[in-house]
Design a protein around this nucleic acid. Structure first.
Lengths: 272, 272
DNA sequence: CGAAAAGTTGATTGTCTTCAAAACTGGTGG
DNA sequence: CCACCAGTTTTGAAGACAATCAACTTTTCG
């Protein structure tokens, strides 16, 4: 897959057609609420506009209906609040319904590392399966809503619906592959390549959700981004400024526009 | 869990009792052959001395017997040869029976990143589940033998034996958590901390297999280790020399002895 | 409106990389 | 069995890139 070569956060929606459009079509900077025309209505997986990107992807209509059994009530998470935190007992996986999250691991000595950013359709909490305890925390970077999937019920259902079992394996494998990409980024790329790879990945994921591929809002601070990319926030800021001087992007605060996609791709493809 | 704080390669054998001893007890530098008194005999999971570290961990005796159904004939891999490579069709997972492997991702432009080192009892190939194609390659760093587990048969069996389903989820989750640890290492530690964290992790894993915790052989080159740790081989070498000057370790070629475990732990626990 | 948070930019420092050469190890074939 | 050679490791010196420290600007939010 071509995209894997430069993707730091390897596409979390491997089999999403690029042409997928959510309805209604998003102008590009729609706030989270726009995702959900009917604010509090519970939407079944089979009716969810994220079904092609999320857990039910690839399941038959009948299987999808059964999945609704494990999806509990939605949970809202305000900006800055935690969905779960390190050490908390693991009981459920969470699919992002709207909004934007970061996950981070924290060490006893106060070191902190952002391990990923999650957007609509992506699953959080997989780290907790190992020993029924979350080993990272998830923080909403904007007001968000998640679908809560009780893990024990998922296991039961996966036992009956083998397509769900397959899909769970694929989701976990995808996360492993994504993290390989991040390791590649952290282990062998310079600052500019890291930022470029991140932007390309984010652009692709936005596009897969029907947003503009070239123009979007960065939901995280420079410090969060720096942590994820293994850089200090000043370096991230300087790198953005440099890319702007070179006419490759236009960055204004958190508003980002890619002006020269080819140049951005070129930055990641060639040796440092 | 205390160990998670400094483990780059988070313990791949989470529920192994530290006191686990393989029989016969290993003197510390036993070659791979020692693991297998009967060279070519097929050992069932239920009789395998690695069962507490590997896929059957935590399964009942009856379930373990059923697992033998999916474990095909062993496969030998000579030093330097690939078990599987990027792009190859994924059909099976592999459990290391003896020997030592590295896994690495490679990009079109020739960049290379070692994503992990695997030893007895650890599972390789999880990255291939996502799209039935391996996204990394596995190379034996010494003559090795693996148990081949056909994935489609594993899925069938997991459908019947729910304990196997649970265990597969745990193994994948463990890999995700391990990679979080590597991201923390690559994203926020200096060279000395990275090397120290790696040594502590390796020591722990050796110990879990009945080897000495303080004295072992490094099976990988400095270049491999550098790739894994996001450093150049010269930096790895210099860091070893520095740790040696400080009286913390004794390194001679690939033979390594930890002289001051507490000091090594201190290097990782405190802020850079 | 004012304070706090987030972001930018500059100067300097430090760590790691790069380039280079020498020393060591281990396997192979004479 | 020993010598040799390729691959690996060590060490040094110089240079590059990102981190650090610091000042200032802009935005956000109570």
């Amino acid at each position: 897959m071509q995209t894997q070569e430069y993707d730091p956060q390897l596409c979390a929606v491997a089999n999403a057609r690029p042409a997928l459009r959510l309805s209604p079509a998003m102008p590009g900077f729609a706030p989270a609420q726009t995702w959900e025309p009917q604010p509090d209505a519970q939407v079944a997986c089979s009716n969810c506009n994220l079904r092609e990107l999320c857990v039910p992807a690839g399941l038959s209509r009948a299987d999808m209906d059964r999945i609704d059994e494990v999806v509990g009530p939605r949970r809202k998470v305000l900006r800055g609040r935690e969905l779960f935190h390190t050490g908390e007992r693991f009981t459920a996986l969470y699919a992002v319904r709207s909004g934007f999250f970061k996950t981070c691991v924290t060490t006893a000595d106060g070191r902190d590392q952002v391990t990923g950013f999650q957007m609509a359709g992506e699953v959080m909490g997989l780290d907790g399966i190992m020993d029924t305890q979350h080993s990272c925390s998830a923080v909403a970077l904007e007001d968000a809503e998640v679908c809560v999937m009780q893990y024990d019920r998922m296991q039961e259902l996966a036992h009956e619906v083998s397509a769900l079992q397959t899909q769970m394996h694929r989701i976990m494998s995808r996360e492993i592959v994504r993290e390989h990409g991040v390791m590649l980024l952290l282990g062998s790329m310079c600052a500019q390549e890291r930022v470029a790879a991140f932007l390309l990945n984010l652009a692709q994921r936005m596009h897969a959700r029907g947003f503009s591929r070239t123009e979007f809002i960065l939901r995280m601070t420079r410090a969060d981004l720096g942590s994820y990319l293994g850089l200090k926030l000043e370096t991230v800021s300087r790198t953005f400024s440099k890319l702007q001087d070179e006419g490759i992007v236009d960055v204004r605060w958190r508003h980002l526009r890619i002006l020269d996609m080819a140049a951005l791709e070129g930055l990641v493809g060639r040796q440092a």
